[in-house]
Design a protein around this nucleic acid. Sequence first.
DNA 1: GTACGATACGGACCAGCGGTCCGCTTTGAA
DNA 2: TTCAAAGCGGACCGCTGGTCCGTATCGTAC
Lengths: 202, 202
Amino acid sequence: MAERRPRKDAMRNRAAVFAAADALFAECPSPDGVTMADIATAAGVGKATLFRAFGDRTGLIRALYEARLEPLRKAVEEGPPPLGPATPPLLRVPALLDAVLCFKLDNRHLALALERTGADSPYDAEHYERWHALLRALLACVPGLDGSDFAAHALLAATRADLVEYLAAGKGRTREEMRAQLADFTARVLGAGAPPGTAGDG
Amino acid sequence: MAERRPRKDAMRNRAAVFAAADALFAECPSPDGVTMADIATAAGVGKATLFRAFGDRTGLIRALYEARLEPLRKAVEEGPPPLGPATPPLLRVPALLDAVLCFKLDNRHLALALERTGADSPYDAEHYERWHALLRALLACVPGLDGSDFAAHALLAATRADLVEYLAAGKGRTREEMRAQLADFTARVLGAGAPPGTAGDG
DNA sequence: GTACGATACGGACCAGCGGTCCGCTTTGAA
DNA sequence: TTCAAAGCGGACCGCTGGTCCGTATCGTAC
């Protein structure tokens, strides 16, 4: 076994850092307002500890984000409908997008920090690939929908963190308004191939 | 007269800075790799000149971007169809989005630099408001399309610079592939009312 | 309980960035 | 030619992400 369990204090510090970072990002209006030194101080650890544990700022944010995302990921991969795998595509796609939107609303600060963390494209993140691959596969089942690959990107782009932030904080959109609008848009994309008369709901 | 013409050297320097910055951003893979000092050196001016002329880094990038965008803006506001105002909405919307996509492809470096310029949201830029307002107005004419406001945001999000960069550079998509896919997607959004005579699927 | 090697800690430290300041040069009109 | 004002530019500053190394802590073998 090359695996060696980390020391207790290391684990405790890791948890403390997560908590502190989460709180700080939540408080601060702009992710850039939160420095690594801030996080270290708030967590009661030294700066070097952050970098040792997470590599760099991006690594810390990403780790935190993925940790928060974990429940949703699990619900999608092995949970019950409408998120889980047993759901038919035409229902699952809107459910997925709605879940992503809600997650971003609930974790705006983190999503924002992640998506604009310096030089890294948000599209390089592993979880994006996951969402995209899944969505693409589902869209491929939709009749008449050409280019499911791009459509998946486009639909996910509609839930970009800074757009969500802009609409929610800047434009005062409520959560339910945004959910309804995204659902409308999604239905529009999904439903164009349906023969007239069958796609009744609005 | 409150207006006083700027001095010759000031104008010449401004032009030199534009040229240098454009070239540097085009060369450098990441916008962050281009520093203000780099631009100043390449333009043959002092750093302070940059800040005096443009306020800060964001101001410089924004000014450069808007300058490059100017022809397109004009074409949209007073040009001939399919971009100009005389075009019926169902034709103009795809034309606009295609034009935006092409612009971002042609100016990837600038668009990327602008959209992730530190703390500023790309949605605060004036030109975004312009595009959105226009698109929204056009979408409002599309029968059966609820939520033209959000739909306009979502369609524009499909042309985000980092997505374009990701698809073009990372995934090797050609220009024409991307144009076609965006056109498909746009048509899908526009055409939920069953496009006449098309046997599209298959 | 104690001694000891490995592991992790943390604050001083560094390079590089955006942004500012002030003495000097250029400009253009009298 | 003169001269005031507009503009210039490189030294300078504060702050950031990131690193280093002496030191404290942990887990273990005795």
